[in-house]
Nucleic acid binder design. Structure first.
Lengths: 233, 233
DNA sequence: CAGTGGTCTAGACCACAAG
DNA sequence: TTGTGGTCTAGACCACTGG
């Protein structure tokens, strides 16, 4: 069967995907090398490379020099989650955003926070607690520690008007970080702030971000009951 | 200041990142076009393109034809989550994997499942419930519906030996799907199966996958207390 | 050692969108 | 209309790795 000329990398990728889904190329099989494919498709090898590279990045193909390219046996699928600013997330759902600063103080952090932020024992950090609301109802509760050493301008920030979440995103391009997703059961504090029932299951995101100068901030976002994080794969 | 010759796309990308982090190029700023940068760095335009394309995909740059390339104002960071087979996830943590089939039957699905799987009213689907254990303790509880119309070979699957999770990954390369993450509070059923206390917060993943023939499967994974999903950004 | 993917190049044309 | 990114090409060399 001839497939005609596939002149762009998208159509090459589509054709490769088609063959995998049609099980013409099965998991574990080696597929022809780039040079052969480029001859078959009537395009340059670079075009085939572009197509296959994408599929390898998404985990569907495994590529090794000398060995060749094979269809992944157990494809590790990758889900891509967008992490927008909370205000945008709420407004994006067509709901009215409101923000409330609950507290702002300098304090010595508890051991777990201190460890995550690699700050010295006894050193005070900025502790900001706030609430984001959608259509007047609590949406997510933000408990954040900020290291002023890595971001001195923080003292000029007005957290009455703008949430630390938004201020930091706009003012400190970070270089790296990590995110942890988990679930907790609502305790008295969450009950009060999020206006939920005792022991409701709550979705939690813990996030830390850093630059070359060290850890900037560590935050726990506790979402109101019913929150869902969704993505396509 | 001269940066010398940057001959590969990685070093070009690093240099661009450096300038953004050093706030030489600030959020909202336009950066020089590809042709200028390629002259400055002493490399081909394609090399600059490769470097900038990656940064645009990760959300740090915004590129538009004719307009040019600018540093994103509010970078929508993307977290990439690996979704491995559960057995691999457990074994990857150095823990002993065990799998238990709890039930397997043909049944008419409840309305929410039927809607998600786009199956006809009254049509029976395969319903498989199973438990994955790590070091002898419940790890995650798998409640899965499978549409035999889209994957007839399912009847040959031996779910006593291999979990539906693994069987499906190995046997049906899917074309698309969606994932939802949320939290619930443990009810009697979860208490029994996961051996946890009442009302503990549990992490939940709902996932559906499809091919051109329709929805293959829809699964709810309910994780034992303390489960965390982690990634770097 | 040799075969495969990974990358760079110089040049070309195309597609989109701002003015 | 025109400037910018998006892509393709043909060829070249490099880097890794299996045999």
């Amino acid at each position: 069967m001839t497939t005609g000329e596939l002149k762009n990398w998208q159509s090459v990728q589509d054709e490769v995907l088609r063959r995998i889904h049609a099980r013409q190329w099965k998991p574990g099989d080696f597929i022809p090398n780039e040079e052969e494919l480029s001859r078959e498709f009537g395009c340059a090898r670079a075009t085939v490379n572009r197509a296959l590279r994408g599929l390898a990045e998404s985990g569907l193909l495994e590529r090794k020099r000398k060995a060749g390219t094979r269809v992944a046996l157990s494809p590790v699928r990758k889900a891509i989650l967008d992490i927008p600013v909370i205000r945008r997330e709420i407004e994006g759902k067509g709901r009215a955003y409101r923000y409330l600063l609950l507290s702002r103080e300098e304090a010595v952090p508890p051991p777990d926070i201190r460890a995550r932020m690699q700050s010295e024992p006894g050193r005070k950090l900025l502790h900001v607690i706030s609430l984001h609301m959608a259509d007047g109802r609590p949406y997510v509760f933000e408990d954040r520690w900020i290291n002023p050493d890595t971001i001195p301008e923080i003292h000029e920030a007005d957290f009455e008007r703008q949430s630390p979440n938004e201020w930091l995103v706009m003012n400190t391009p970070f270089e790296g970080g990590d995110i942890t997703f988990s679930a907790i059961s609502a305790s008295a504090r969450e009950m009060t702030i999020l206006a939920c029932k005792a022991h409701e299951g709550l979705f939690v995101i813990d996030r830390s971000t850093w630059t070359g100068k060290g850890v900037i901030t560590s935050v726990r976002l506790t979402f109101a009951p019913g929150y869902q994080m969704h993505t396509d794969i």
